[in-house]
Amino acid sequence: MTRPSALRVADLSQNTPTPFELRPDSAQLDAMAQELDLLALRKLSFAGEIAAEGKRDWVLTGKLGATVVQPCVVTLEPVTTRIDVPVRRTYLANMPEPDGDEVEMPEDETLEPLGSVIDPAVVMAEALALSLPLYPRKEDAEPGDATFAAPGTTPLSDEDVKPFAGLAGLRDALKKDS
């Protein structure tokens, strides 16, 4: 991986952005795929820069690119998805601390408290996890009829549970008799 380790904020240049480029090797890709319950993580790259914003705050901007393989939610067959997303994190030296039992989420979800280090690898892993499709599905996959019942009982179909389905048949039978 051509990744720097976590970057110490004290070592970052206040005047010039610090570039980074991460490309995990195959062992790291396999470990991330396992952690994220993926069938495979074929490619992953994260490149960008960390720049000063004001006197004490920092902004990380970059672009995440990945090719992931997940099981289809209908058929469990592999579904390959390409992810290309911009990433932004703003590290604030004076991040307001939440107080009280209930905390509202800030409008800007890219805000983070500034610590002594900024780790682009952690941001990459988080951005990848947040960008994964929640319900990957093959193009032609359609949900089938699922029937569930205890052994020895007849399963209910969708038609059986419609409350007025039997009344329509009764109505038709009464019309024939009249």
Rank of each mutant, 00 (worst) to 15 (best):
G166F: 02
A125K: 11
D101Q: 05
L170I: 09
K175V: 03
I83Q: 09
M32K: 10
P120M: 04
P19R: 09
I118Q: 07
M95K: 04
K43H: 12
L111F: 09
T110N: 14
E107C: 09
A6C: 01
Q14D: 08
A146E: 01
A93P: 00
E102H: 04
P24A: 13
T80V: 09
V59P: 01
D30W: 01
R137E: 15
V79M: 12
A51V: 04
L156A: 05
V123E: 13
L29W: 12
D172T: 14
W58C: 13
V161R: 15
K43I: 13
R88S: 12
D119M: 15
P17D: 10
R88H: 07
T154Y: 00
D30S: 12
A40V: 15
K176I: 03
P106C: 02
L38Q: 00
Q70V: 12
T16E: 12
Q70E: 05
G115K: 14
A150N: 12
D11E: 15
A150G: 05
T110F: 02
E139C: 01
Q14M: 10
V9D: 07
G54T: 07
V9A: 09
P71R: 08
P155M: 01
D145V: 14
D11N: 15
M124W: 01
A173T: 06
R171K: 11
E102Q: 12
L64V: 07
T154L: 00
T90F: 01
V122W: 00
P96Y: 04
P24L: 02
R8N: 12
P98C: 12
V79K: 03
T18K: 02
N94F: 02
K162M: 09
E159G: 04
E104H: 11
T75V: 02
T75K: 11
A165L: 04
L39H: 11
P24Q: 02
S26A: 11
K175C: 15
A129M: 10
K43T: 15
R56M: 02
A127Y: 00
G115I: 05
G166M: 00
G65V: 06
P78W: 02
E97Q: 09
A51Q: 06
L156F: 06
E53W: 03
A31F: 01
D119I: 04
L64T: 08
W58Y: 06
D108R: 03
E77R: 02
L38G: 07
E102L: 12
T153G: 00
M95V: 13
V103W: 11
F148S: 03
G54S: 07
P71S: 07
A165Q: 09
A66T: 08
E35W: 03
A93C: 04
V74E: 10
D25E: 11
V85D: 14
E104G: 13
L170F: 12
L174S: 04
L36Q: 08
A93G: 02
V103I: 14
D25A: 05
L29I: 12
L92P: 06
M1S: 10
D140C: 03
D11L: 10
P163I: 09
R3S: 08
A6F: 00
A149N: 08
S5H: 08
V87P: 04
L170R: 13
Q14Y: 00
V68T: 06
P143C: 01
A51H: 12
M124T: 03
L29G: 12
K176C: 00
E77Y: 13
D177R: 03
L36F: 06
I50R: 08
P19A: 13
